[in-house]
């Protein structure tokens, strides 16, 4: 026992020094158990969000109103599957298996971003998701490219690089609608009205209520506070909305000269908590569909594994 404690203290000191020096922690380094579990939880939630996030947009692939838009949307939804894969891979470097993480998603023991529990009711929602939801996601994700855990940071570099087209296609889609017929313009405005507030909720609860923030900031898993990022996002969106010719549904949205930022109205955190708890419009639908795809695919996965075993090709 006497030999373990000093060794652990030395390992912890080395870990702290690595983080302090802004170097990356790599999979086989010693790390505090809480750091590992925080990362697994966060990366898994992120991966789950990517694959659940495919659903609201896939909802429109078969109805996309032009072949150009259809190709763009298919490529985007495919990217989300790819991003899910990158992120599950990152989580697996921490000793969690993808099967186990998927199981936790399917049984409600791990979460995904609440935003995907809202429905895509019209084609304009595809644009609003690209502009606002992906925009908020990018605001959240860019700092993660410098996260202290190497595999997560590297996955995020790849994700961010690929996502740059996601936001632009959404903006362009909305712009086309906004400048189109009256009906198209109204469709775009309606979508922005419905997605604005949920997008602001994507940054998480206010800083004074955020339970994981302080430790994550110290570990450099997180680089900016929820409220900081939310403000940054609002400031970016206001002029973009003007250029679109659309309004944001907040009467309190006004430039504050002293702060050098836009002030905005208060967020309905009751709604946020309710959706998080499972009472959003699509929580059940999303999880059921995911679970069904997984269950209906089991025979396929088994077949391929059986084939590999029969022919001595399994990689183990």
């Amino acid at each position: 026992m006497t030999t373990i404690a000093p060794e652990e203290a030395a390992q912890e000191a080395a870990f702290d020094a690595t983080v302090a020096a802004d170097e990356r922690i790599e999979p086989r380094d010693w790390m505090p158990e809480a750091y590992r579990s925080t990362l697994v939880r966060q990366i898994a939630q992120h991966a789950h969000s990517e694959i659940i996030g495919m659903q609201p947009e896939a909802n429109w692939i078969t109805r996309a109103p032009s072949l150009r838009r259809k190709a763009i949307l298919m490529a985007k939804v495919q990217d989300e599957a790819g991003h899910g894969l990158y992120l599950y891979s990152a989580a697996e470097t921490l000793g969690a298996s993808r099967d186990e993480l998927l199981d936790k998603l399917h049984t409600g023991r791990q979460k995904y971003s609440s935003i995907f529990n809202y429905p895509t009711l019209t084609w304009a929602d595809v644009g609003a998701i690209g502009w606002l939801v992906d925009g908020a996601a990018i605001t959240n994700q860019v700092p993660l490219c410098r996260c202290s855990y190497g595999p997560y940071a590297r996955a995020m570099v790849r994700v961010c690089k690929e996502e740059s087209f996601h936001q632009r296609q959404g903006y362009e889609l909305l712009l086309t609608l906004s400048r189109g017929t009256d009906a198209q313009h109204a469709m775009a405005q309606d979508a922005v009205d419905r997605w604005w507030w949920p997008s602001l909720m994507m940054f998480g609860p206010p800083d004074d209520e955020s339970s994981h923030s302080a430790q994550s900031m110290a570990w450099k898993i997180k680089r900016h506070s929820n409220d900081e990022l939310r403000q940054r996002f609002v400031d970016i969106c206001v002029p973009q909305a003007e250029a679109l010719g659309l309004t944001l549904p907040d009467p309190d949205l006004v430039w504050n000269e002293d702060r050098g930022h836009y002030d905005f109205g208060s967020i309905d955190w009751t709604e946020f908590r309710e959706v998080l708890k499972g009472n959003g419009p699509c929580n059940e639908q999303r999880i059921n569909r995911r679970r069904r795809a997984h269950e209906e695919g089991a025979w396929v996965r088994e077949a391929a594994a059986a084939h590999a075993a029969k022919h001595g090709k399994a990689g183990r």
Binding site: E100, D103, A298, A314
Partner: peptide
């Protein structure tokens, strides 16, 4: 809900 499935190691569907 709550059924522990974490011990499901080496299921046939778990590709390497």
């Amino acid at each position: 809900s709550g059924a522990p499935a974490e011990a499901a190691d080496a299921r046939p569907t778990d590709w390497p």
